[in-house]
Design a protein around this nucleic acid. Structure first.
Length: 119
DNA sequence: CTTCTAACA
DNA sequence: TGTTAGAA
């Protein structure tokens, strides 16, 4: 299943095709690249070449813009993968603590109330 | 003819 | 964002 991914990443469309596929103007497509929302490849003659993944991302960006998201917000979405917006992310220490308590629990040496406050 | 960069009556 | 000029 790795071959498909490679094909999706192959840069094969010139900007003209991407314009038709995404219904975005060349100006916008180039602007989003400038904002680092997409990273099209370049040919030996400096022409931008987009992959299927790039087109998908552009389509996604188009939706986000319509939904009112700023370019900055979208940038963060792609560069700062934050899992669940509200919940706190578990650190390695948290995982060790939970694992440790779980072992104690299985051993039946402590009651749930004795460690529940640890996480 | 298509795409690129830079600039703005 | 659109548009345009000049180069590639």
């Amino acid at each position: 299943m790795r071959e498909k991914e490679l094909r999706r990443s192959l840069a094969v469309f010139p900007i003209g095709t991407v314009m038709k596929l995404t219904d975005l103007s060349a100006r916008q497509i180039r602007y989003y690249e400038e904002r680092q929302l997409v990273k099209p490849q370049r040919t030996d003659t400096n022409r931008r070449m987009y992959s299927l993944n790039d087109v998908d991302r552009l389509l996604e960006i188009k939706d986000y813009i319509q939904e009112g998201l700023s370019v900055q917000a979208i940038y963060n979405k792609y560069h700062r993968p934050k899992s669940k917006s509200k919940e706190r992310q578990l650190t390695d220490e948290d995982v060790r603590q939970i694992l440790y308590n779980e072992i104690l629990n299985q051993g039946g040496f402590v009651q749930p109330e004795d460690f529940s406050h640890n996480y």
